[in-house]
Simulated scan of single mutants.
Amino acid sequence: MTAPSTNDVIDTVLGLDRFPDLQALREERAKLKHLSQTSYQAALRPAEPRNFSYALRAALAARMAALWKSQELSAHFRELLESEEGGSALVWIANPGNGAEGADTRLVAILAHVDLVTLSPKEATRANIEKLTAAGLDDRDIVALAGLIAFVNYQVLVVAGLKMLRDN
């Protein structure tokens, strides 16, 4: 058996320290667990955030988790958002029920894309990417956004699966 690694976000939000059998199960895939946490860092806290501040990344992540009704992750990302510089101005983004009235066209396009890919990924087309370009996002911005969306949606599914195992 591999030596236990330090807790990651998934362990923490699910309180897996109180479930040693489930923690042991996760440690059987320690490399995947490590890569998931490394991906978390890359998606939410990259060395160079460019045009997506850490606060915006956290707000978008909280929004996606809320769309999935993942209370644990939504709470985690909201806490992360509130700890970020400028986060208080972006709290409204974390609530998918809030529209983007008054937001700039760039943010409106980003929110529409996040919601679409999270809720109906099969409906996303090249035209949706073109809307992001038209709103001022460059290729690197679009790749960063796609990475954030992909990671958070992956993380939500992992948490949901582990939660089912934990609660049964």
Rank of each mutant, 00 (worst) to 15 (best):
Leu67Met: 12
Lys69Ala: 13
Glu79Leu: 15
Asp115Val: 14
Asp167Arg: 07
Glu79Trp: 12
Glu85Asn: 15
Arg29Glu: 14
Lys163Gly: 06
Glu84Met: 13
Ala24Trp: 05
Thr12His: 07
Ala150Asp: 05
Asp11Ile: 00
Arg45Val: 07
Ile93Ala: 07
Leu80Ile: 10
Leu56Gly: 03
Leu22Glu: 06
Thr105Lys: 08
Glu130Thr: 07
Ala146Arg: 05
Leu81Ser: 00
Leu16Ala: 06
Gly99Tyr: 04
Asn51Ile: 04
Pro96Leu: 06
Ala134Ser: 05
Met164Ser: 15
Leu35Trp: 13
Gln37Arg: 13
Asn168Met: 10
Gly161Met: 07
Ser5Asp: 14
Val13Asn: 01
Met1His: 15
Ser83Pro: 01
Gln155Cys: 02
Asn51Leu: 08
Arg45Trp: 10
Ser53Thr: 11
Ala100His: 02
Ile10His: 00
Asp104Gln: 12
Ile10Phe: 04
Thr2Ile: 13
Arg106Ala: 11
Ala24Ser: 12
Asp21Trp: 14
Ser5Val: 13
Asn51Glu: 11
Phe19Asp: 08
Thr38Asp: 08
Ser83Lys: 11
Val159Leu: 07
Gly99Leu: 05
Gly99Asn: 12
Glu84Ile: 09
Asp141Trp: 07
Leu90Thr: 06
Phe52Tyr: 02
Leu44Ile: 12
Ala66Gln: 00
Tyr154Cys: 08
Lys163Arg: 14
His76Phe: 11
Pro46Ile: 04
Val9Gln: 04
Arg140Ala: 15
Val158Ala: 12
Ala109Trp: 01
Ser83Asn: 12
Asn95Leu: 08
Asn128Cys: 05
Asn7Cys: 06
Ala89Gln: 11
Ala100Trp: 01
Thr118Ser: 06
Asp167Val: 11
Leu162Thr: 04
Leu67Asn: 06
Arg29Asp: 13
Asp104His: 12
Gly147Ala: 11
Ser5Ala: 15
Glu79Ile: 14
Asp115Ser: 13
Glu72Asn: 11
Leu148Trp: 06
Asn51Pro: 03
Ala3Lys: 14
Thr105Phe: 07
Ala3Asn: 14
Ala47Met: 04
Asp104Ala: 14
Asn7Ile: 02
Glu48Cys: 10
Ser53Glu: 05
Gly87Val: 01
Lys122Leu: 08
Ala127Arg: 10
Leu157His: 14
Val114Arg: 01
Glu101Phe: 05
Val13Glu: 01
Leu148Val: 07
Ala43Pro: 03
Glu48Thr: 15
Gly15Pro: 01
Val9Phe: 01
Glu85Thr: 15
Arg29Phe: 09
Gln155Gly: 01
Ile110Pro: 00
Arg140Gly: 14
Gln71Ile: 11
Ala61Val: 05
Ala3His: 13
